[in-house]
Amino acid sequence: MKQMIATLAVSLGLAGAALAADPAEGTWKTQPDDGSYAHVAIAPCGSAVCGTIARTFNDSGEYKSPNLGKTLVIDMVPQGGGAYEGQVWRPSNNKIYIGKMDLNGDSLRLRGCVAGGLICSKQTWTRVK
């Protein structure tokens, strides 16, 4: 009986951990890039998280960008302590970079790098409530 209770407790604990949302999940507002910014929806994609462009904005307000629905944050794998590693796509030049993310509360710092990390571009996103 004790073994059955212990097995049940472990099983429930593992199920709860599997259902726990990644802290980076949610909607994030990017910094402006070439005069436009986006809301990016970050959600699980396998054992990583990915971010898809959900809404786009410019000086005139919300508009329908041809980039809607495209993946901007690609296979970011949690490294622990709020750090992630994967790739990022920059729509303004249509290039994919080695990417890193650092989550700190409602702030998400992204870096896209080339040349082995020698040249990087950075943005800090804020969580949309």
Rank of each mutant, 00 (worst) to 15 (best):
E62Y: 07
K64W: 04
A9E: 07
L108S: 02
D34L: 13
K64F: 02
Y37D: 08
G117I: 04
Q79G: 03
T52L: 08
R111N: 15
G82D: 02
L103D: 05
G112E: 09
V40P: 05
D22S: 13
P44L: 10
A20V: 12
A41K: 13
P32N: 12
Q123C: 02
M101V: 03
W28N: 10
V77A: 13
A115L: 13
A48Q: 12
G35L: 14
G35P: 15
T126C: 07
S47W: 01
V49C: 04
A38C: 06
G35Q: 13
Q123H: 00
A41Q: 11
K2P: 09
G51L: 09
G13P: 03
G86H: 12
L108P: 03
M4R: 09
D102T: 12
G112F: 14
P66L: 05
A9K: 07
A15I: 10
A115K: 06
I42R: 07
N67Q: 08
I42C: 09
Y63K: 07
I96D: 03
P44F: 03
G46E: 01
T27F: 06
Y84P: 02
G16D: 02
K64C: 00
A9H: 06
T30E: 01
Q87C: 00
I98H: 09
L14N: 00
G116V: 05
T126L: 02
S36D: 05
I42P: 11
V88C: 04
T124A: 00
Q31D: 10
I74P: 08
D59T: 13
V77R: 12
R111S: 15
G13E: 04
G81W: 09
A9P: 02
G112L: 10
A15G: 04
G105Y: 08
Y97L: 15
T56H: 11
A54R: 11
G112H: 11
S47C: 02
S60M: 12
A38T: 06
Q31L: 07
G16A: 04
N58I: 02
V10K: 12
G117A: 01
Y84I: 04
L72M: 15
T126A: 12
A83K: 15
V114E: 04
K70C: 04
I5H: 04
A21T: 15
K70S: 11
D106S: 14
A48M: 12
G86N: 11
S11Q: 04
E25L: 09
G116R: 03
K64L: 14
G105E: 00
S107N: 03
N94C: 04
S65K: 01
R90L: 03
